[in-house]
Amino acid sequence: MISKPPDRSRYRLWPPSTGVLAGLGVTGLVLAGVAGAFAYTVGLLSPGALTQTRIVDRFQAVNGIHPGFRRNHAKGVCVTGTFAGNGAGARLSRAAVFGSGAVPVVGRFAVGIGKPFLPDTGAEVRSLALSFRPASGGEWRTGMNDIPVFPVNTADGFYGLLAASAADPATGKPDPAQMTAFLGTHPETARALGLIKARPVSSGFADARYNGLNAFRFVDSSGASTPVRWSMVALDPFVAQVPPSGAAREPNYLFDGLVARLQQGPLRYRLVITVGQPGDPTNDATLPWPAGREEIDAGTLTLDHVEAEGPGNCRDINYDPLVLPDGIATSNDPLLSARSAAYSVSFTRRAGEPKTPSEVQVPARPPATPGVPATGG
Rank of each mutant, 00 (worst) to 15 (best):
Arg108Ile: 11
Asp333Trp: 01
Pro244Arg: 09
His186Ser: 12
Pro321Lys: 01
Arg94Ser: 01
Asp280Lys: 12
Val275Lys: 05
Ala234Trp: 08
Ser93Pro: 00
Gly184Ser: 06
Ala96Met: 03
Thr142Phe: 00
Ala155Cys: 09
Leu92Val: 03
Gly204Cys: 07
Gly64Cys: 01
Arg12Cys: 08
Asp57Val: 08
Gly223Asp: 07
Arg94Gly: 02
Ala234Gln: 07
Glu353Arg: 09
Arg191His: 13
Ser331Val: 01
Ala61Asn: 06
Arg71Ser: 15
Thr121Lys: 08
Val242Asn: 09
Asp326Met: 04
Gly112Glu: 06
Pro325Phe: 00
Leu45Gly: 12
Thr51Glu: 10
Thr53Arg: 14
Tyr159Arg: 04
Leu235Asn: 15
Thr154Ala: 06
Phe117Met: 13
Gly33Met: 05
Thr356Gln: 15
Pro321Gly: 04
Asp168His: 03
Leu287Cys: 13
Tyr40Ala: 12
Asp304Gln: 10
Asp320His: 03
Glu294Gly: 12
Ala163His: 06
Pro357Gly: 13
Pro200Asn: 07
Val360His: 07
Val242Ser: 13
Thr27Val: 11
Phe69Ser: 05
Val228Cys: 05
Phe109Asn: 02
Ile317Val: 14
Val275Thr: 06
Phe182Asn: 06
Ser3Phe: 13
Ala368Glu: 11
Val20Pro: 11
Arg209Phe: 06
Cys78Ser: 14
Ser127Asn: 10
Val30Cys: 06
Val242Leu: 12
Gly327Trp: 01
Gly184Lys: 08
Arg293Glu: 14
Glu307Ser: 07
Leu287Tyr: 13
Thr142Asn: 05
Thr348Tyr: 10
Phe158Cys: 06
Ala364Asn: 13
Pro244Thr: 09
Phe347Ala: 11
Val201Arg: 14
Pro134Met: 02
Arg199Leu: 12
Phe38Trp: 09
Gly19Met: 08
Pro363Ser: 10
Gly265Val: 02
Val56Phe: 09
His305Asp: 09
Ala22Lys: 04
Asp316Phe: 14
Ala164Tyr: 05
Ala368His: 10
Ala129Cys: 11
Arg58Asp: 10
Arg365Asn: 11
Thr80Asn: 03
Gln264Met: 04
Ala368Val: 14
Ala224Val: 12
Pro354Ile: 05
Ser344Pro: 02
Gly114Leu: 08
Val152Asp: 06
Ala163Asp: 10
Arg10Ile: 10
Thr356Trp: 15
Gly327Val: 01
Arg229Trp: 05
Glu359Gln: 15
